[in-house]
Design a protein around this nucleic acid. Structure first.
Length: 924
DNA sequence: CATCCGACATTTA
DNA sequence: TAAATGTCGGATG
């Protein structure tokens, strides 16, 4: 259960009639305990209570009691030896009227009416066993609001199905945005009297809810009517402008239609309004609530949340660090402070994939903090902010987040005003909202960013459009940043080449405008980089995006980076591969990088890691400091090395593959099947020493094989699977179901190279196998390897090369023949060199054998690698590195430098004049 | 025809 | 249930 679901469950529980006997179990269930756990507690087996209550070990001791005995019951719980013995974290007592609880770890207590206990949802969250409890607890309000709005949204769509259609979705989303605004406004004092909106709806609408929509519609109309026009508008007294002022800003213009409310929907509405909306965090709430309008995403409601520290990893190096440094520099000098404020007033932040606007909101808040410090030092604490909200702009594809993004910014502005200037001034300046267009709802890769948000402010004028309501009064507006800086930032969507829809493929193609041969292998996120590049090239902007780390690895490097790094565009800073996290129970496990681009300058470039910052003169597209080379995939080896190919692809849906048990029972029952069975080795098998078996049938032998019933059945499985495939090649393979989809096998010795392997290992894993072993397509195959080639493969130099130049799976090593083996630069080897290396390789194999039957995973565990094996590898490295530079390398940086250097030289000499195909691209 | 990828997928502790 | 660590086959060049 995620936090939103828990919130809903406990809210439901509080509304039901109190059932003293079942309450403890219902309570635990609401916090996500499994049915079996509850059952065991009910049976008494795991219930450790000594008071007749329910005590779950390491968790909570719950006691229901007679009316008026709650405090006494809590005391009893506290004094109970069982509570201590079972290490309960919480105690809870209730009689159905009062409710008391204590967090025994912190000593914090809760005492409230029973029906209000869900208000203390955050207090109990440690019970839910959610790992990021601290973050959630801090944002308990946002989760509760999300949960309740979601219920309302779903309920309204149930009663008004036409509002869920494509044509009406925007109206629905707009309606929700209006509601959220009203809830916020009524609690912050923007409306006359706290809670006035909810209260008015409650009072004016009939209990049977039949006219709820009319009441709300009337209030919306009031908020769209200027004071002086109120009389004409003939609005009822309860919608007077003292209470419901003119808001507009596009928010309340357009259609006043409101969906019809059922009795349930009405009660949900009042319920949401009952929350204290002053507690809203606009940066977090937005990303939580956006899933409400997305049928596919609703399951992860409240969970897609980009943490503030992660957003700052983008914004700080992009421009905030610089602003803070300038603030520091200015000290108390009023003129320098004023200049900084003037500069900040012209800074524009643009997020072309803004979602619900969290990057924009955080950027705004951080800038307001800096400005507040300036104003304090200048003795102008009450000063109205010089930072226009309209300079925080975005593009968002989805309608609802786009609505929310603007709302989030409005709320952030108000909250900053309250924080830095006080409630009174904040209120005075809040209304009416301006009509300007901040967030464009559209496809960022199809829009022209330059004309949408012209960099100098002198170009195209923008029109306020109907983003926040249907036809606005077409106000032309200017961007308030003439001569200012523009910072493009965000976390655009990543989609691998094989995950994109046809229309997304076209988006990418449009963005690249034919500058690369094909965009088909590029990640979707590359589109944002190329468009940001184009924007920077024509203005004094800079950008930084969170991106999948794949675009700085493997085949994508040579595909897209030469096009991005032209016209004096450079990588200003980078934070290579780190895990991105959110609150989802099914965590989006994705490894990202942050890449910042700008116009070339002499400023040092910064490469960030977890705790360090490294300065560099240049950052290459692999995000390695001072390495500019780009390695191109090659189908033939740069150095004279044996050919490596992929293993054989079964493409069989398991039909041709046999587990050890399958294979043995098959041969036992049908001894004649023996000759159709071979060992099958892949990545996992190589690393963990467990091979599987496979059917390996020559066409000549097919009839004999088919005579064996289990084999015939298996071949049938393969045939059906292939026939059902959408891929033409695979369909064709259905004609030969007894064969692997792709056969790459010879009856000689081979080196098996896993395609993927864990990153901690000090050397790359491999296994030598004979002709009776088939290597599958989870591994790469070096046929008839020469021993000195094994030495090369097993070297430190090689693993460094592969780690840098090949792709990765998350941060796992991913081996590639074309990118890694064929490009590996090796100096010319003498016969003596080869002999020496051969001996080294043999020593490595011997050392491995000493530890039979230890697996590669055991042997190359960085903490447990046996000394003799380590020594053998070390010897191998020593011999090889002496061949490269006549001594050992000092470190991996030096190794990589030499490899890139050699690669550049070797590719230049292989293709002297016009051999572009292989030439490494280098920047002087 | 061969390669490379995964806002992953599945196993393991 | 989070941490560890590599399948599999389709799209692509």
């Amino acid at each position: 259960m995620n936090a939103v679901e828990i919130e809903q469950a406990i809210t439901d529980l509080a509304e039901q009639p109190f059932d003293a006997a079942n309450f403890p179990y219902d309570f635990l269930e609401a916090f996500g305990n499994k049915a079996t756990t509850i059952k065991r507690l009910r049976a008494g087996a795991s219930n450790k209570s000594d008071l007749g209550g329910v005590l779950q070990t390491n968790n909570i001791h719950i006691l229901t009691c007679d009316a008026g005995q709650v405090s006494k019951a809590l005391k009893a719980l506290k004094d109970s030896p069982a509570t201590t013995k079972a290490k309960a974290k919480f105690i809870l007592a209730t009689d159905g009227t009062d409710f008391e609880a204590e967090d025994l770890t912190s000593g914090e207590t809760v005492a409230c009416a029973f029906r209000d206990f869900p208000d203390h949802f955050g207090f109990f969250l440690p019970l839910a066993g959610i790992s990021t409890v601290r973050q959630i607890t801090e944002n308990a309000f946002d989760i509760r609001a999300t949960s309740r709005l979601n219920r309302l949204y779903v309920e309204l769509l149930k009663d008004n199905p036409e509002w869920g259609t494509d044509e009406r979705r925007h109206d629905m989303n707009h309606f929700m945005a209006r509601l959220i605004f009203c809830f916020f406004a009524e609690d912050t004092g923007i409306f006359g009297g706290k809670g006035k909106f909810t209260e008015t709806v409650a009072q004016m609408s009939a209990r049977d809810s039949s006219n709820t929509h009319e009441v709300i519609s009337t209030l919306f109309l009031a908020m769209n009517t200027r004071r002086e026009q109120r009389a004409v508008a003939n609005l009822p007294r309860w919608a007077s402008s003292d209470v419901f002022p003119y808001v507009n800003g596009g928010l309340f213009s357009g259609s006043m239609e409101v969906p019809k409310f059922s009795k349930i929907a009405r009660s949900y509405l009042l319920h949401v309004g009952g929350l204290d909306w002053t507690k809203i965090n606009p940066d977090i709430f937005g990303s939580m609530i956006q899933a409400v309008a997305d049928d596919e995403e609703r399951g992860a409601l409240g969970m897609h949340y980009t943490s503030v520290p992660n957003i700052l990893k983008v914004l700080n190096p992009l421009f905030l660090d610089d602003l803070r440094a300038k603030l520091e520099e200015a000290g108390d000098n009023p003129r320098m402070l004023l200049n900084l404020r003037k500069r900040m007033a012209k800074i524009r932040v643009f997020d072309p994939a803004c979602g619900s606007g969290n990057f924009l909101v955080i950027a705004y808040k951080e800038m307001r903090a800096i400005e507040a410090e300036i104003n304090k030092r200048r003795g102008e604490p009450d000063m109205r902010s010089a930072i226009p909200l309209t300079n925080f702009r975005g593009i968002e594809l989805r309608d609802f987040p786009a609505e929310i993004a603007r709302l989030a910014l409005i709320i952030a502005e108000y909250q900053c005003d309250v924080l830095y200037r006080g409630q009174k001034l904040a209120l005075a300046d809040f209304l009416p909202l301006s009509n300007e267009n901040w967030i464009t709802c559209g496809n960022a890769l199809r829009l022209d960013w330059l004309s949408l948000y012209p960099p100098t402010g002198t170009g195209v004028k923008l029109q306020g459009d109907d983003l926040f309501g249907t036809p606005l009064d077409q106000t032309e507006i200017d961007f308030e940043n003439a001569g200012g800086e523009t910072y493009i930032c965000g976390n655009p969507p990543y989609k691998g080449s094989q995950e994109q829809t046809p229309s997304q493929k076209t988006d990418l193609d449009t963005a690249f405008r034919g500058r690369i041969k094909s965009t088909k292998s590029a990640d979707y996120v590359a589109g944002w980089f190329i468009l940001a590049r184009d924007y920077i090239a024509k203005s004094d902007a800079a950008c930084a995006f969170v991106t999948t780390n794949s675009i700085n690895q493997g085949r994508q490097v040579s595909l897209i980076w030469p096009t991005i790094l032209t016209d004096d565009i450079e990588i200003r800073f980078a934070r290579p591969s780190f895990p991105w996290s959110n609150l989802a129970s099914k965590k989006a496990v994705v490894t990202v990088s942050i890449v910042g681009l700008g116009r070339r300058s002499n400023r040092p470039k910064l490469v960030f890691t977890q705790n360090t910052v490294k300065e560099a003169k240049y950052i290459g597209p692999y995000l390695v400091p001072d390495q500019s080379a780009i390695v191109l995939p090659s189908t033939s080896s740069l150095s004279p090395l044996s050919e490596m190919t992929y293993g054989s692809m079964p493409n069989d849906n398991g039909g041709l593959i046999l587990s050890s048990d399958d294979a043995h029972s098959l041969v036992e029952t049908y001894p004649q099947a023996q000759r159709f069975v071979k060992r099958l080795l892949g990545s996992n098998g190589t690393i963990h020493g467990q091979w599987r078996y496979c059917l390996w049938i020559s066409t000549a032998d097919l009839d004999a094989a088919l005579a064996i019933e289990p084999i015939r059945k298996r071949i049938e499985i393969v045939k059906n699977h292939r026939a059902r495939s959408t891929r033409v090649t695979t369909k064709a393979l259905a004609a030969t179901p007894h064969l692997f989809g792709e056969v790459r096998h010879s009856d000689s010795q081979a080196l098996a190279v896993p395609c993927h392997s864990a990153e901690g290992r000090p050397y790359l894993p491999f296994a030598l196998v004979d002709g009776d072993t088939v290597i599958d397509n989870s591994a790469i195959r070096l046929s008839e390897p020469r021993m000195y080639e094994v030495a090369l493969y097993a070297s430190r130099l090689h693993i460094i090369w592969i780690a840098t130049v090949c792709g990765q799976l998350e941060t796992r090593y991913r081996y590639s023949n074309t990118l890694g083996w064929n490009t590996f630069p090796v100096p010319t080897l003498t016969e003596k060199n080869k002999d020496d290396l051969t001996r080294c390789a043999e020593n490595i194999l011997l050392a491995r054998e000493h530890h039979f039957p230890a697996t590669i995973a055991d042997l190359y565990d960085p903490d447990k690698m046996p000394d003799d094996l380590r020594a053998a590898h070390d010897r191998n490295d020593e011999v090889l590195e002496r061949i490269y530079i006549g001594r050992r390398f000092k470190n991996d940086t030096e190794r990589l430098e030499k490899l890139f250097d050699l690669y550049t030289k070797m590719t230049a000499s292989t293709a002297p004049s016009k051999g572009k195909k292989r030439t490494a691209r280098t920047r002087a």
